[in-house]
Nucleic acid binder design. Structure first.
Lengths: 155, 155
DNA sequence: TTAATCAATACCAAACTGGTATTGATTGCT
DNA sequence: AGCAATCAATACCAGTTTGGTATTGATTAA
């Protein structure tokens, strides 16, 4: 399925909410209510995006969360990596590469290439793009156009 | 991690081997030996790519497998889908979409867009590209170039 | 008929995932 | 100082997925 976890999805939803709130600090409760997620789940989500530096947390009474960067400075890649760690499609393209069939398999470097490509795609889409349908549509079509050209090259 | 399963990786390795063998039928044993995979694992791999129509199987004595299409007609996407089913990054972008927080989440359509994008990337890379380092390098650089342009648009 | 070969399942352990709960540390307020 | 609000760190658990293997059955060439 090549899918990302639900938590990652939630992360984007929460970030969207925080972007909406701007400088206004949001407590776990606030976020849970605004997003419809359970409090426990929100806590788990917050940990990941705080650790990743995408959100700033303030403890204690009157504490809460606020977004750490402008929405156009946060890429989908940032969010995905916050939850799923460094992206590597296969173990071949992971850092600690020790595949038993490496000798008979000349494909490792290629996975790495594909991997890089996906990183670029995800890194090129920001929270802003996702939040604003217009911008998103525009960007989307641009990329599709480019890709159709690429596919011709590929034949 | 956003990763694909090992089986998918094996699938690509096996297809590469079959592409090499061309019209010469390969038995499960042959493939296991050539790739270094266990026989049992090869069997599992074969089922997926046969079901997907990427490989043709012939049963009985003197039977075996041969590749069903030219290597430039098989995309990485084909292989990934053969093993991991239809690609959908999130449940939002899946067919049977029934997310509890849909009302408060305006992001569903955007995941779908990102999803489409990844499909295109993977669909644009063929087994041939992966097997031939030269072609692959060339293609790779083309795509990277294109993407750098896209990222500028995105700022 | 027989041996070679693919097909279909079934099984199991290990890892991962989503979801929840518990306890502890920090901070503003009075 | 003490309290209440709030985030942090873990720990737990059930369900699913994944990787790997084994077993039995169906097909076919010679």
């Amino acid at each position: 399925m090549l899918r990302i976890g639900k938590l990652t999805d939630y992360g984007l939803v929460v970030l969207n909410q925080l972007a909406l709130a701007g400088a206004m600090k949001q407590s776990t409760d606030d976020i849970a209510q605004a997003t419809g997620l359970s409090i426990a789940t929100v806590r788990k989500v917050m940990k990941a995006i705080v650790d990743a530096g995408l959100v700033i947390a303030q403890r204690g009474a009157k504490g809460g969360y606020r977004i750490a960067l402008a929405p156009n400075q946060i890429s989908v890649l940032d969010v995905v990596q916050a939850f799923e760690g460094p992206i590597s499609l296969t173990e071949c393209s992971a850092d600690d590469n020790h595949c038993e069939i490496t000798e008979s398999c000349s494909l490792a470097s290629n996975w790495t290439g594909i991997n890089d490509l996906l990183l670029r795609v995800l890194g090129g889409i920001t929270l802003d793009d996702i939040r604003n349908p217009d911008v998103q549509d525009k960007l989307h079509h641009d990329i599709i156009d480019q890709f159709q050209r690429i596919q011709l090259v590929n034949l």
